[in-house]
């Protein structure tokens, strides 16, 4: 799989969780990329995605910044 295809795959998984209402609540960076923990706001359900591509890591980071910004 090309880097780009792998990124699309990672982005789809992230978007799927975000659309379910999950929020990023933890990030562990390591030698294989980043493990991103998602938490559903209505429960204790968590899911962790391993994000390996550079574009994927940029993508969830941008979402995290957006998530941290105060909502009007």
């Amino acid at each position: 799989m090309s880097d780009y295809q792998q990124f699309l795959d990672e982005r789809d998984k992230i978007d799927f969780l975000i659309q379910k209402g999950c929020q990023i609540y933890g990030v562990r960076e390591h030698l294989n990329g980043a493990s991103v923990d998602f938490l559903h706001p209505n429960g204790n359900v968590t899911e962790t995605l391993l994000i390996g591509t550079a574009n994927g890591r940029k993508y969830f980071s941008s979402l995290l910044i957006s998530q941290n910004q105060p909502k009007n």
């Binding site: 990023i24 609540y25 933890g26 990030v27 960076e29 980071s61 941008s62 995290l64």
Partner: peptide, 19 residues
Amino acid sequence: LAPMTWNDRQTALSVAVEC
């Protein structure tokens, strides 16, 4: 995506860890 620097990213990540 909106502009994001490495420094912005690291700040956001540190907030996530604290949360």
